[in-house]
């Protein structure tokens, strides 16, 4: 595999190789000398068409710990209809000798276009495309889940994961459903019907409209960010009603099994989908997700760019 565009492209073995590699790299990150020489002389471009400082910094840190040269190409503000075209930007990056392009874009499929239109030969890593996918987020979520639920080993067979919130617009949900299913977990999506896509019934997961039932026997609950603007488009009547029906507050959290962890891909709307005391509780692994993100992204770059033999999938 040359690119990471969708978690649908990862076999169970591919995913486990990434998680295992991330675990090894995490140990290095704990050492005082954090850098590995693996990608010395290689160039990684962070091509971000959307503002996402946290994701960009995570990729940047990962690339630097592997000794890659990092170029941040911020195309923020350039909407799809104005400014330089994706194609022309790609040709520029190709001329600059980019070995990998990490792309965040508001248009679903933009990384796919970048990888498959013949504009560029680089490895393309999807750092979130529109409402499509965010594969490295799903990988870091799987890594976090495995650490807490399976002692950091093997897959997630039998684990019960409930993902709550704006599934319709969530690239995190799409990538997670596919990856967690590949790893053997049972995924339940929970949202008001307006925030579930038509066609969700074909996804490899269960669907629920009732939060209390959906989380009753969950091993992990993942809360998705819900943008307040959705209210204006009548996806739900009010922030208050949303948080009452689909928000995770302390009272609801108290009904969870004792081992259940709470996750959130960030950035959080405290008081909306997640109460502050839940986000800061002992069950919350939200901060840890961030640090795991660096290890997982290191693993992805290491495997896609590092050794010819160790590449994911072998083709």
């Amino acid at each position: 595999m040359q690119h990471l565009l969708s978690t649908a492209d990862l076999t169970r073995d591919d995913a486990l190789l990434i998680l295992d590699t991330a675990a090894e790299l995490a140990q290095i990150s704990d050492r005082p000398m954090k850098k590995l020489p693996t990608l010395r002389g290689r160039t990684v471009v962070n091509l971000f068409y959307e503002d996402s400082t946290r994701t960009r910094i995570s990729f940047e840190a990962a690339a630097k710990r592997l000794s890659a040269d990092v170029i941040n190409f911020s195309a923020k503000g350039s909407s799809v209809s104005k400014g330089e075209s994706l194609k022309d930007t790609a040709l520029t990056l190709q001329a600059m000798g980019a070995d990998a392009v990490v792309i965040r874009h508001a248009a679903s499929g933009a990384p796919h276009r970048l990888a498959h239109s013949g504009w560029i030969e680089s490895t393309v890593i999807n750092a979130g495309d529109g409402t499509h996918e965010h594969p490295t987020q799903a990988l870091l979520d799987a890594y976090t889940l495995r650490k807490h639920l399976r002692d950091g080993d093997g897959d997630l067979a039998g684990a019960r994961i409930t993902i709550v919130g704006d599934v319709l617009h969530s690239r995190v949900a799409r990538s997670n459903v596919l990856l967690l299913n590949t790893l053997g977990a049972h995924v339940t999506l929970c949202a008001p019907p307006t925030l579930l896509p038509v066609g969700v019934e074909e996804w490899p997961c269960a669907v629920s409209y009732a939060l209390d039932q959906a989380i009753a026997d969950a091993d992990a609950v993942m809360m998705l960010r819900v943008q307040l603007e959705r209210m204006n488009a009548s996806f739900f009547p009010s922030a208050h009603e949303y948080s009452r029906r689909y928000g995770l507050d302390a009272q609801r959290m108290s009904t969870l099994p004792t081992h259940t962890i709470v996750m959130h891909p960030g950035p959080m709307n405290r008081g909306m989908e997640i109460a502050a005391d839940v986000a800061d509780s002992k069950r919350s692994v939200i901060v840890e997700q961030v640090s795991n993100g660096v290890s997982v992204r290191m693993a992805v770059m290491y495997l896609l760019l590092g050794g010819a033999e160790s590449g994911i999938g072998g083709n």
Partner: peptide, 18 residues
């Protein structure tokens, strides 16, 4: 709307044209 609303649009994350 970007494409037909259905199973494929759900997977691709493209806004549906029902």
């Amino acid at each position: 709307a970007q494409m037909n609303e259905g199973v494929v649009s759900a997977r691709l994350g493209l806004a549906g044209w029902p």
